Amino acid sequence: MYHALVKRLAAKNFELINTKGHTELLASCTSDISHRFGGDHALGGQRHSREALGKWLDRLGRLVPTLHLTITDMWIKGTPWNTTVIIRWTGTATFPDGAPYHQHGVHVVTLRWGKATAIDANEDSQAVVQMMTALAATGITEAHAEPILN
């Protein structure tokens, strides 16, 4: 029963990324959440607060507004006070020139009593760099900004 609830929560949170429901998504995180997104680019780095994650989500929404994530597999392990959720996903968007963008990755999410305490996003960072480079080439300076850290 608990794992079914967690599965629904995780699926809802991925849909909130798609719909830019950042406020609701952040409400499901602890104030000291750890968020890591691999790569050396504007979306890369590690954050250690809900506020920093909110800034990161806002940047993601501005830079890749057409991003759509689709969960392909999900595994849940643990108890309500120490739950691990592994989510395999694909992502699509559109490059500035209209070409399709394809992405894939795995999130490892740690929950405590239904709140996310850590999100470790493992994606094709080269694909992200290609998108950031294409965006910067069109004059979007935020695509080459320093990562949001803290």
Rank of each mutant, 00 (worst) to 15 (best):
L5R: 09
I119G: 13
T110N: 10
L69D: 10
L135G: 00
M1A: 08
A143G: 00
I17P: 04
L25Q: 09
V6D: 04
W89H: 03
H48E: 07
K77N: 10
T94A: 05
V129H: 11
I76Y: 05
E142A: 13
S34W: 09
L149W: 12
K77R: 11
A99I: 05
L5W: 07
V109Y: 04
L53I: 12
V6H: 02
R112S: 14
W56P: 09
H3N: 03
L16F: 06
G61E: 01
R36W: 01
P65L: 06
T70H: 13
L149P: 11
L60A: 11
S49R: 00
W89E: 04
P80F: 04
N18M: 08
H107M: 02
M131A: 07
L53Y: 13
T84Q: 07
T70K: 15
V109T: 02
M131G: 03
T70Y: 13
L9N: 05
D40P: 05
G114F: 12
I71L: 09
L63M: 10
Q103A: 14
Q126V: 13
K77C: 11
P80Q: 04
H48Q: 07
Q126A: 15
A121C: 02
G139S: 09
W75E: 14
G78M: 08
A137P: 03
T66V: 07
R59L: 06
V64D: 05
F14R: 14
G39C: 06
G38P: 08
D58V: 14
A121H: 01
H3Q: 01
H102T: 10
I17T: 07
R50L: 10
T133G: 14
I86C: 15
V64G: 03
G91W: 02
V109S: 01
Q103W: 13
L135S: 00
G91T: 04
H48W: 06
F95N: 13
I17M: 07
V129W: 08
T66P: 07
G39W: 08
H104T: 05
E24I: 08
S125N: 10
H144Q: 12
L63V: 07
E51D: 11
V109N: 01
T133H: 15
T94G: 05
G91P: 00
E51V: 14
T84P: 04
G91E: 01
D120W: 02
L63F: 10
R47Q: 15
R59V: 03
G45W: 02
A4W: 14
A42M: 09
P65R: 07
S125L: 11
T92E: 03
H35N: 10
L57V: 00
L53F: 14
E24R: 09
W89A: 03
L25H: 13
G61R: 01
V6M: 06
S125A: 12
H22K: 13
D58S: 13
T66Y: 09
D73A: 12
A145Y: 06
G38S: 11
G114S: 07
A93D: 12
D120E: 06
P96A: 15
A118W: 12
H68K: 10
G98S: 10
K115I: 08
R62W: 00
T66H: 10
R62C: 00
R8C: 04
L9P: 01
E142G: 10
T30Q: 15
A143I: 01
E15S: 14
G39H: 08
F37T: 08
